[in-house]
Amino acid sequence: MDLSIVIPVYNEEENVQELAFEVKEALEPSGLRWECLWIDDGSTDGTWDRLLDVAQGRSSGHHRLYGLERNTGQSAALWVGFQRCRGRLIATLDGDGQNDPRDLPRLVALLDHDGYDFVQGYRATRHDSLKRRIASRIANGFRNFFTGKSVRDVGCSTRVFRRECLPYLPPFKGLHRFLPTLAMYQGFRLTEMPVRHRPRRRGIAKYGIFDRLWVGILDLFGVWWLRRRGFRCRLARAYPKQEPL
C-alpha cells in the first residue's frame, strides 16, 4: 500500500460522501495504491450511515471505517487511524471539505522525489472569516516562538509523511496541532507546500476561536517539556538481523 489517508469526522453527514468522491477522483489517475480510513469521532447525526454508503459503494475496497464510542477529539481520532494504516506514506485531511484532495498527489511526489520525510501544507489563500484568520496567525506565531520550530501553518490538515514518523508521535489531546513540530524534534526532514483551502459549504465549524486558544496554550507547555526532556536515537545495527532497522 502506497498511501493511507486518515480523515477524522464529527457530525459531517452533509460532507463525507462528496469528500469520498473527491478523494477517488484525485487519486485514481495517480497510479498510487491507496486506502482511506474514516474515523467517526462519536457523531450524533447520520455521518456513520453516510460512511456506510461510501464503504459499500463502487469503490468500497478503498475505504475502511472506525467509529469511536463517544466524541473524544480530533487528536484521538487521528491516533486511532494512525495505528491502523497500512501505507508506507500517511496523509491527513479534515472531514469538512475545506481541504482539497487534489493536493495529495503533489505532496506525495515531493516526498518520493526530493527525499523529505514530512510535507506540511499551508493555506496560501484562506477562506475563513477575518477573525479566524487573525486568530490563526497569532496562534501560529506564538506556537513557533514557544516551540523553537518555524512552521508556517500547523493548523492546515493537508499533509503527507512517512510511516517511520509514527512511533515518535506521542498520543495526547493536542497532537493534531503539533504533528510537524514533533516530527522535526526527532530529526525528520520537513518541507512546506502551498495547498488549496476552500470555504465550508455545509455543516458548522466544531471549534470556537477561544476554545482553541486556551487549550493550545496548555498544550504548548507539554510540547516545550518534550523538547527539553526528549531524546533522539536511531538503531544503527543489530545482530541477528531479523527486521529492518
Rank of each mutant, 00 (worst) to 15 (best):
P8T: 06
C36I: 01
T147C: 07
V119E: 01
G216K: 03
D40R: 02
R70P: 10
P194C: 11
R229F: 11
L218T: 14
G87P: 05
D49N: 12
G121T: 03
E28V: 14
H176D: 14
V223W: 00
N11T: 06
G73M: 09
R202L: 14
E14H: 07
L52S: 11
G46A: 13
G203T: 06
Q186L: 10
R126W: 11
F210G: 15
R237K: 15
R64N: 03
H127W: 09
F210R: 15
A77W: 01
A76G: 15
L3Y: 00
H113V: 15
T47P: 01
G230D: 04
Y207C: 14
C85M: 15
L235T: 15
P167R: 11
G148W: 00
S75G: 12
G67D: 11
C156Y: 00
L226A: 04
R132A: 07
G57I: 00
N144S: 04
K206W: 09
L218P: 09
I7G: 00
G230L: 05
D100F: 05
A139V: 04
E69I: 13
D219W: 05
L3V: 01
Q74P: 13
L190W: 01
R232K: 13
P240S: 12
G46R: 08
L104S: 02
L52Q: 10
A20N: 02
T158E: 02
G187K: 06
P101W: 00
G148P: 01
P194V: 10
R137V: 05
Y239M: 14
G95E: 00
L169A: 11
I5A: 00
V80A: 13
L37R: 01
F82S: 09
G203R: 05
P244Q: 06
A55Q: 04
A183C: 13
Y122G: 07
W79K: 12
R126Y: 11
F188K: 04
F82L: 14
R201M: 13
E18F: 07
D94E: 06
R88T: 11
W34S: 01
F145Q: 14
W48T: 09
F21M: 12
F161A: 09
Y168D: 11
R163D: 13
